[in-house]
């Protein structure tokens, strides 16, 4: 299977409740929580589009868009 390349993280800040599950389990530490305890993308270039954040997010707040 061809590796998918990241286009962008579509984050819904209104739905994110800042539980930190995506941050903790991201294998490449791409995302973090900001001052308002909402998820933000810090190192998009490191993302391997594994979608583990999207799959585990309990708030359906992250979507990985690939090319």
């Amino acid at each position: 299977m061809e590796k998918k390349k990241l286009k962008q993280h579509a984050i819904n800040r209104e739905w994110c409740k800042g539980c930190g599950i995506c941050v903790e389990f991201c294998p490449k530490k791409v995302i973090e929580l900001d001052r308002k305890e909402k998820v933000i993308v810090v190192y998009p270039e490191k993302c391997i589009a594994c979608k583990l954040c999207e799959l585990r997010c309990p708030d359906l707040a992250i979507e990985i868009e690939t090319e």
């Binding site: 209104e14 739905w15 409740k17 800042g18 539980c19 930190g20 599950i21 799959l55 585990r56 997010c57 309990p58 708030d59 359906l60």
Partner: peptide, 23 residues
């Protein structure tokens, strides 16, 4: 597949039920 007008959902931050719904 979701009724967007009802989100964000009522589950607490970090509740596993959201992950089940997503799955």
């Amino acid at each position: 597949y979701i009724r967007e007008r009802f989100l964000p959902h009522i589950w607490c931050p970090g509740c596993g039920h959201g992950t089940v719904m997503s799955g």
